[in-house]
Design a protein around this nucleic acid. Structure first.
Lengths: 242, 242
DNA sequence: TCCCTTAATGGTCAGTTAGACCATAAAGAG
DNA sequence: CTCTTTATGGTCTAACTGACCATTAAGGGA
């Protein structure tokens, strides 16, 4: 197995391939991530993104969805939004061996209590802010996931993936505000969402009443649109084009 | 080496990992792709994206850049834009063995004549339109590359990566038109580009004269901006939000 | 040499959109 | 019963886009 470039083009080193997940949700108005506590070295005691090896008969996407089901304990993850982020392949990302990781982002509506994986690792929802250093390069993967989701909110109808089947426009707005870390004007947000055909559609004859302290809000469901055109741009960030 | 999910989480199958490239350029107003002709089965005689195995001491990015240098014959590829697209890992994408491919898109200004790789495979620039079926799932990879680049032109200053060090606004506009397959209004395009600080900056005291048949165009260089805000959106495509 | 064509550049004008903001309605809390 | 809270509806203005016209400056051909 030579490593000389160009010497034998078909020499190759077998790598381990894993699928790791940045599972995001919004709980109590804050972005939360599903993390597992590592029980062994390296990074014993550190939090890490859930994930596992891709099996011979499955794609990275299949592996990610399987892991998602295992870690969240959800019986049906087929409808959840799962998005491939990118692949991390630096030679020294895992001190034990050469591991190539295909990273995914998953978006969940309500935070179900996490299910302890079969490896007995503790799985918990932790707030995105106030996270210590994660194991391996998972800080970077998580940051990439955050940035990707934030960007996709601009030009896609992805935000409803964070919402339960029926939701109010206030909840939808909170998704944007939480992910972007910025406040939005409520009437303007409302105008934009309702002006986009297929983003949301009103629930036939309902309005949410109890819990809230103010005027009851109308309930909406996810529409059939996937793209948001023109986009809903994040509040101006100075130096964005620098 | 078990494949039973959950049975032994740390069982893993070693995979071959390759980095494949969609090298794009614009030649004579048409989008061209660098392809190599396969000399052996499977897909002997078919065109394929250039690529190769990731070596033990390099990341997928390094491998992609190395392949890029080998296939194009360029001595310095360090300044070229290289972007990771996504990873293709379906179990049956290569009939010979399990191969996981990290795909990249590369953007080149002027089309240098391709360099025959060390495996003696013929490498050629072929027009993006009028391509027959490619080997493996490279059709899909190439389509994904096209879509990604087209999307990034909207909200980034990536277009100059297709241009030589000094270029006219007409050339820059042709990049957009070629990738998007749509015509743009010249004065409006000019207004937008010049209104974005750092997108392009004028060459100190020059104007392009000869070759062209009309009024000589001013020359510009790539600016220091990377993002385009607000974005330069593609002409309205009906059903975009459906 | 003198048009004619071509392409770059400069400008106008109206429709659309986004951001800021005010006003009203409808619930619960005290 | 009034105050607070939240949803909803509406206005107004600046910015931006898209369509379009005008002018300038080159080369080509009669």
């Amino acid at each position: 197995m030579t490593t000389t470039p160009g010497y034998d083009k078909y020499a190759f080193e077998p790598f381990a391939v894993t699928a790791d997940l940045a599972v995001l949700t919004i709980r109590a108005g804050a972005l939360h991530v599903l993390l597992v506590e590592r029980g062994q070295e390296p990074y014993a005691g550190h939090w890490a993104l859930p994930g596992g090896f891709v099996q011979p008969d499955e794609s990275a996407e299949s592996a990610a969805r399987r892991e998602l089901a295992e870690e969240t304990g959800l019986s049906d993850v087929s409808g959840l939004h799962l998005e491939q982020l990118r692949t991390y392949s630096e030679p020294d990302r895992d001190p034990r061996m050469r591991v190539v990781t295909v990273a995914f982002a998953a978006l969940l509506p309500d935070p179900p209590e996490p299910h302890a994986g079969s490896d007995a690792a503790q799985a918990r929802w932790l707030p995105y802010d106030s996270l210590g250093p994660l194991a391996f390069d998972h800080d970077r993967i998580l940051a990439d996931a955050h940035e990707r989701v934030g960007a996709k909110l601009e030009y896609s109808c992805l935000a409803t993936a964070f919402c339960p089947p029926e939701f109010t426009l206030g909840e939808l707005q909170q998704v944007y505000e939480t992910v972007w870390g910025a406040e939005l004007d409520r009437p303007n947000f409302r105008r934009k969402v309702l002006a986009t055909p297929g983003f949301v559609e009103p629930v036939p004859g309902g309005a949410k009443l109890t819990g809230g302290r103010g005027k009851p809000a109308a309930l909406y469901r996810t529409g059939d649109a996937t793209a948001l055109y023109p986009p809903l741009l994040r509040p101006t960030r100075e130096g964005r084009s620098a």
